[in-house]
Amino acid sequence: MYSLILAVAVRYTYPLLLLFAAFLFLKGHNSPGGGFIAGLLTAAAIVLSYIASKRSPGDGPDRFFVNLIGFGLCVALTTAAVPVFLGYPFFTHTFGFVDVPLLGKVELASASLFDLGVYMVVVGNVVTVIRAMTGQ
């Protein structure tokens, strides 16, 4: 079912949704938000773009989103495992402050890398599941 109104609307809301997902992701370190919610939002945006377009969600490359789960797990597991090689317990995280032009002093935490892994797993998972359910 193709709707012109939805298609035009999605053309403008899609980048906004992704931007909001990025905002949620970064905000998540010390307040509500984070990789999981940002992942859900991104997946919702992708699914919305499927609905708005003429393509069926089942079409298109199948491998990408499954591989995304794998890459996400890789990122998360690596961030958790690196401290082991530095002599700390598994999952130990650190953070530091960096001066970034325009933004000033910014806190960078290694935990957000783990969150990035979570984000990828969630996006890959949700999109794969929805595609599988609608594909046939």
Binding site: V66, N67, G70, L73, L77, A80, A81, V84, F90
Partner: peptide
Amino acid sequence: SNLPILPVALPLASAVVLLF
């Protein structure tokens, strides 16, 4: 020692590899 995590971390790592 990080030994107790290995029986969990090793299968997890291999699961990721096997996914690909």
